[in-house]
Every structure is written in structure tokens, then in C-alpha cells.
Amino acid sequence: NMTTNERRVIVPADPTLWTQEHVRQWLEWAIKEYSLMEIDTSFFQNMDGKELCKMNKEDFLRATTLYNTEVLLSHLSYLRES
């Protein structure tokens, strides 16, 4: 059983600085953390943090459901504000 610390993704605090690998790690973490289903992860495959942060609700909806979109966008905006 993993502790919270072991599951925590170590990525730069500012999502606009993320590499493609960071985006992948964040997505994998969010899927596990929030038990998200039905995400087309290939949609995010060649995307870095700058591109991710430019995405709006409609962009996310092409890859996943409305619920997942709201979870991911709210977590992303939380990270950008902190």
C-alpha cells in the first residue's frame, strides 16, 4: 500500500514549465487520485505544459467527459494560482 508521498508526482510547481513527461505524470496521477475514467490520454501525448495551460473547456471535452474536464481544469487552475 503506497503512502501519499510515494504517489505524489514531482513536477515543477508552475504547470507552464512542464515538459511532455510532466504532463503525462500529472495526468496519470489525476486519473488515479480522482478515479477518472474515459480519458483519451493519447490526446495529451505530445503536449507540454504551455500547450496544456492554453487548453480551454472545449479542448478538454474532445479528450474526455464533462466531469473529468471540470476536475482536471480546476486542479490545473489551483496549481497555477499556488
Rank of each mutant, 00 (worst) to 15 (best):
N1Y: 12
N1M: 11
N1L: 08
M2K: 05
M2L: 12
M2G: 15
T3A: 14
T3G: 09
T3V: 06
T3W: 11
T4G: 10
T4A: 14
N5D: 12
N5Y: 08
N5P: 12
N5G: 11
N5E: 11
E6S: 11
E6M: 07
E6A: 07
E6K: 13
E6T: 12
R7T: 12
R7Q: 09
R7G: 08
R7W: 07
R7Y: 08
R7E: 11
R8Q: 09
R8A: 07
R8V: 05
R8W: 03
R8M: 09
V9A: 15
V9F: 12
V9Q: 15
V9L: 11
I10W: 06
I10A: 15
I10V: 13
V11C: 15
V11F: 15
V11S: 15
V11D: 12
V11E: 13
V11Y: 13
P12W: 12
P12F: 06
A13Y: 10
A13C: 11
A13M: 11
A13I: 13
A13S: 14
A13P: 15
A13K: 14
A13L: 12
A13R: 13
D14Y: 13
D14K: 02
D14C: 07
D14R: 02
D14W: 04
P15C: 04
P15V: 10
P15R: 00
P15I: 11
P15T: 03
T16M: 11
T16K: 10
T16C: 04
T16S: 09
T16H: 02
T16G: 08
L17S: 12
L17H: 14
W18G: 03
W18F: 02
W18H: 03
W18N: 01
W18T: 00
W18V: 00
T19R: 08
T19C: 05
Q20H: 13
Q20P: 03
Q20I: 03
Q20R: 10
E21Q: 14
E21F: 14
E21K: 05
E21G: 07
E21V: 09
H22R: 05
H22K: 06
H22C: 03
H22E: 14
H22Q: 13
R24K: 09
R24C: 04
R24E: 04
R24G: 13
R24I: 07
R24A: 15
Q25V: 14
Q25H: 09
Q25D: 06
Q25A: 10
Q25I: 03
Q25L: 09
Q25N: 14
Q25C: 13
Q25W: 05
Q25R: 12
W26G: 00
W26Y: 15
L27H: 03
L27R: 01
L27G: 05
E28V: 11
E28A: 12
E28L: 12
E28C: 12
E28I: 15
E28Y: 08
W29V: 08
W29S: 15
W29L: 08
W29E: 15
W29A: 14
W29R: 12
W29T: 15
A30G: 05
A30W: 02
A30M: 10
A30V: 09
A30E: 10
I31S: 13
I31V: 12
I31G: 04
I31C: 05
K32N: 12
K32M: 06
K32A: 12
E33Q: 10
E33M: 04
Y34A: 05
Y34G: 06
Y34C: 04
S35A: 10
S35Y: 05
S35H: 08
S35M: 05
S35F: 04
L36H: 03
L36P: 02
L36R: 00
M37S: 10
M37N: 03
M37I: 07
E38A: 15
E38W: 04
E38K: 09
E38D: 03
E38V: 06
I39E: 05
I39G: 01
I39V: 13
I39C: 09
I39Q: 01
I39K: 00
I39F: 09
D40S: 06
D40N: 15
D40F: 05
T41N: 09
T41Y: 14
T41V: 09
T41K: 13
T41H: 08
S42H: 10
S42F: 06
S42P: 09
S42K: 06
S42R: 08
S42Y: 05
F43Q: 12
F43M: 12
F43R: 09
F43W: 12
F43P: 10
F44V: 06
Q45D: 05
Q45F: 09
Q45T: 10
Q45K: 11
Q45V: 14
Q45H: 10
Q45E: 13
Q45G: 11
Q45N: 07
N46H: 15
N46L: 07
N46K: 13
N46A: 10
N46Q: 10
M47L: 12
M47K: 07
M47P: 02
M47E: 00
M47S: 03
M47G: 01
M47N: 05
D48R: 05
D48Y: 04
G49K: 00
G49P: 03
G49C: 01
K50G: 10
K50W: 06
K50M: 09
K50N: 14
K50P: 13
K50R: 09
E51R: 09
E51Q: 13
E51D: 04
L52A: 02
L52P: 02
L52I: 02
L52M: 05
L52G: 00
L52Y: 00
C53P: 00
C53I: 11
C53E: 03
C53Q: 09
C53R: 02
K54F: 02
K54P: 02
K54L: 12
K54W: 04
K54M: 13
M55Y: 05
M55T: 06
M55C: 12
M55L: 13
M55H: 03
N56S: 11
N56L: 08
N56H: 15
N56W: 06
N56I: 05
N56D: 11
K57N: 10
K57Q: 13
K57L: 06
K57M: 12
K57G: 03
K57A: 05
E58F: 06
E58Q: 14
E58L: 08
E58A: 15
E58P: 13
E58G: 13
E58Y: 13
E58S: 14
E58R: 11
D59G: 10
D59H: 07
D59P: 01
F60C: 02
F60K: 01
F60V: 03
L61M: 08
L61T: 11
L61P: 00
L61R: 09
R62D: 04
R62V: 14
R62F: 04
A63W: 12
A63S: 09
A63V: 12
A63I: 05
T64P: 02
T64C: 03
T64Q: 09
T64S: 02
T64A: 03
T64V: 02
T65V: 00
T65H: 05
T65N: 11
T65F: 00
T65W: 00
L66Y: 11
L66K: 11
L66C: 11
Y67A: 10
Y67P: 12
Y67G: 13
Y67F: 06
Y67Q: 14
Y67N: 12
Y67R: 14
Y67V: 14
N68F: 00
N68K: 00
N68E: 11
N68S: 10
T69A: 14
T69K: 01
T69W: 00
T69E: 02
T69M: 03
E70T: 06
E70W: 00
E70F: 03
E70R: 04
E70N: 08
V71K: 14
V71F: 06
V71E: 04
V71R: 13
V71P: 04
L72E: 00
L72G: 00
L72T: 01
L72V: 02
L73Q: 14
L73E: 04
L73T: 11
S74W: 02
S74E: 15
S74G: 13
S74P: 03
S74Y: 15
S74R: 13
S74H: 10
H75L: 03
L76G: 05
L76V: 03
Y78F: 08
